[in-house]
Design a protein around this nucleic acid. Sequence first.
DNA 1: AATTGTGAATTGATTCACAGCT
DNA 2: AGCTGTGAATCAATTCACAATT
Lengths: 209, 209
Amino acid sequence: MKKNVKSDIPRKTIYRLSVYLRCLQRLKTNKIRTVSSEALAKAAQVKSTQLRKDLTYFGQFGTRGLGYDVEQLIVMMGDLLGTTSLQPVILVGVGNLGLALLSYQGFEQEGFEIIAAFDSDSQRKRAKCRMPIHPMEDLTQIITDQGVKMAILTVPAPEAQEVANQLIGQGIAGILNFAPIMLHVPEEVMVNNVNLAMELENLSYFIQQ
Amino acid sequence: MKKNVKSDIPRKTIYRLSVYLRCLQRLKTNKIRTVSSEALAKAAQVKSTQLRKDLTYFGQFGTRGLGYDVEQLIVMMGDLLGTTSLQPVILVGVGNLGLALLSYQGFEQEGFEIIAAFDSDSQRKRAKCRMPIHPMEDLTQIITDQGVKMAILTVPAPEAQEVANQLIGQGIAGILNFAPIMLHVPEEVMVNNVNLAMELENLSYFIQQ
DNA sequence: AATTGTGAATTGATTCACAGCT
DNA sequence: AGCTGTGAATCAATTCACAATT
């Protein structure tokens, strides 16, 4: 019998888990307690077989003839994604984009809290920012004290690799990278790249008639 | 002989094009004029065969025994992605995130310009914002006047679908959607979803030991 | 000698088809 | 009867292996 180790599970399945979770939360808000794979799949814009296959990577959660219990799925997914408890995140690089994300605050609702911001120039933009900006020297202490595992990286591209190295050296295991550069990291470190210009480029390609 | 129509080309190939383009721009900055698939692939963190296969979707650009001309590839990719000329983009929803993105301004360097911001409450946050915030009534005029094809959607989830419908009705063909909801759109409209909480969730999943 | 371009092989993800529960 | 769970089949993307070119 084949074990479902993490590496067996398609990455896209994990992304879809997040989508399902949001759909389920909406169902819960609407006081819906049970949902069929057909209905949930529709909300998530996938095929129902895809949803069922995705779920079976993690176990059996449904009742044949009936469907899935909304609350149970929410709990299961929250556990899997590690968002049941608030997770501390740091942000490094308080330029335009970094400042923008700090002022966003949309993370907290989803289980994440930016607990500190860092910049090589800690005086920078202080006026505009409610949050104290730490110098890079404080990294070690804050990361260890608060058990931080994830960082948002919003430094300019030329500095990104060097800063990433520092973060990894201090025990950061997951980086949300906004710098338009592919970071070189050890295998056990996870990087997710977000690049808004790239997303626009991609749209731009597809809408050309 | 098989034609390379757009729908034949994997979506991931187009994303990688953006990555390649950024690597090439760095090479150009460093006055490097020629690059092998091996070297460029390494910078983009893909296999060289992948890079070569990606390129052949669009034509033959290399010289055997030599490699690719950096400048030529840059031009080719800029043309494909439609970033050779500055493209006008509008932003709808000037809440926290929308305001954040407006203040970011990192797009211009990459070929996009946010030419106008809209909000159902056009008085909102005006103090914090350099840019005038238009009421939704101005949509039609600005979109047609400036030939806008793309929109950044940063309204709250419950309003997102309704606003998307409006945008599409006015001729918007590409939406960069930040609302945590899967938009329902006609086939010819392209939606790219960006969800920062989802990216963090995803990281969170993979870093659990 | 070096490096591209590409069919064939492989690997991975999605969808089908239906058996198995409730 | 209705709906889940899943092996098999299909479809898509990646990688290999090597012929073609400079």
